[in-house]
Amino acid sequence: MMANGTLTMGHIIAQTKGNLVSNMDNDKVLMSINSGKYYNLGGIGGKIWELIETPVSVEEIVAALTVEYEVGTAECSSQVLAFLHNLLQEQLIEANVGAGIHSK
């Protein structure tokens, strides 16, 4: 698990269990069964949610998004990290330090 709340490109991101998920128009909506809270992840947020269906690193998420959307790696990285930080605070995801990858 994360040591001090700082998410880095090397972290492996995984969805937590116990969320209901659905598409609503072009958005991805979620409900946490544990907290009873509802979330709208939006369109790109929904894409990220799909990317982490099996655990992947932040770096891999950013790489996938920069292929699909017209966005630079630096800009994409900071936005993805901020988005994942929110999901982490809401306990919708888990972040683990990947094996063999040293966090920066």
Binding site: S22, M24, V29
Partner: peptide
């Protein structure tokens, strides 16, 4: 949940 999402929109 999925049915609700479809109805709601």
């Amino acid at each position: 949940f999925a049915t609700s999402a479809a109805v709601i929109s």
